[in-house]
Computed example of a mutant assay.
Amino acid sequence: MLIWLKSIVKGLYQILSVLIFLLLWEIAPRIGLVDTIFLPPFSKVVLAFWNLIITGELFTHIGVSLVRSLLGFGLGLSVAIPMGLLIGWFKGFESFIDPLVQTFRQTSTLALFPVFILLFGIGEVSKVAVIFWGVQWAVLLNTISGVKNVEPLLVKSAKSLGISSFSLFTKVILPASLPSILTGVRLSATHSILVLIAAEMLGANAGLGYLLFFAEANFLIPKMYAAIITMSMLGLIVNYALVMFEKRVLSWKEELPTGT
């Protein structure tokens, strides 16, 4: 019973800051601290959110955004992870390709969106392409870092056993770099949603970004905030789902004792 009570108290404490923020959001417009035209009380936003749910409009936009995001994200991983493994493993290739990688990763993803529109049109392909481009860099750089920072003692020990280069890579390098790769995947997953939202605001007829832009353009302020909250919730769900996946995949990794 005591353990159960402690768990409840701990859970409430962890969300206390969020509850305080929402309470302030509800009170501030009602007592005149902010203009209700631009920041309506949180209860009105909840009502708008509920209306989006019961009409099914919200799920339509979420579905469209998720399909676009998953396509671009999946394509991005299929390129970034193998490329990161190659760059991290072959030092000569890293020296050759690194200037190009550093140049591309400093280029704003959204700045390239007009280029993708010119190349692929304003339809679905350009939106998937901008996500594909945007998710590359966190995964790529974390993969490179993971391969390069494998414990040298592990590599030396494996080589002393006469292991082949292929086996060294698949049985030592790849498993040891997996935590860094998964961190990059988690960062890129959230980023893919953010990039997509911006792309949908620039040219789309469905999706969360379109919903946000439509609500703002038509001065449907509670609906606009409901769209923003939906995006935040979606990002949190994706992040925590990937954290749980990461823990499950890396369950073999033992915690090092304190002080070692």
Results as ranks from 00 to 15, higher is better:
A217V: 04
K91P: 12
K148T: 00
A129P: 04
K159M: 12
L153M: 14
I27H: 04
L178S: 10
F38Y: 11
I8N: 07
L39H: 02
M244S: 14
L168H: 02
G162W: 00
L19T: 11
I228V: 13
Y13F: 15
G11T: 15
D35N: 14
L47T: 14
H191K: 14
L71I: 15
V147S: 02
T60C: 14
S188G: 10
S180Q: 13
S43C: 05
I221T: 12
G56R: 08
A206R: 08
L194P: 03
L202S: 06
F166T: 12
G121N: 01
A80R: 09
V101I: 09
S69M: 14
V79K: 01
F245T: 13
I221L: 02
L47E: 14
G209Q: 03
L71C: 11
K223W: 05
R30Y: 12
N218G: 09
I8M: 13
A176F: 04
Q106E: 14
I97R: 00
A215S: 15
I221A: 04
K253Q: 07
I181E: 07
R68T: 13
I54E: 15
L85W: 11
V155H: 09
V45I: 05
V101K: 00
S69H: 06
H61I: 01
G32W: 03
L220M: 11
L5P: 13
T107I: 06
F245I: 14
M231G: 14
S165R: 05
S78Y: 12
L250A: 06
V128C: 01
M201R: 03
N51C: 07
K253V: 07
A80P: 01
E246M: 06
L16F: 15
S192N: 07
V125E: 02
L24I: 11
E200W: 01
R248H: 13
L196S: 01
F214P: 06
T36R: 14
G88Y: 12
F116H: 01
L112M: 04
G146I: 00
T230P: 03
V130R: 03
H61F: 03
S17D: 06
W252T: 06
L140D: 00
V185Y: 09
T258K: 15
A204H: 04
D98N: 10
L86G: 05
I122M: 04
F166K: 11
I31H: 09
A204C: 07
L100I: 10
D35W: 04
L212Y: 00
L256P: 12
V115T: 03
S78H: 12
V172Q: 02
I117P: 01
R68D: 02
N142P: 02
H191C: 13
L86T: 00
V155Y: 06
V249W: 08
E57H: 11
F120W: 10
L242G: 03
I237N: 08
P99A: 05
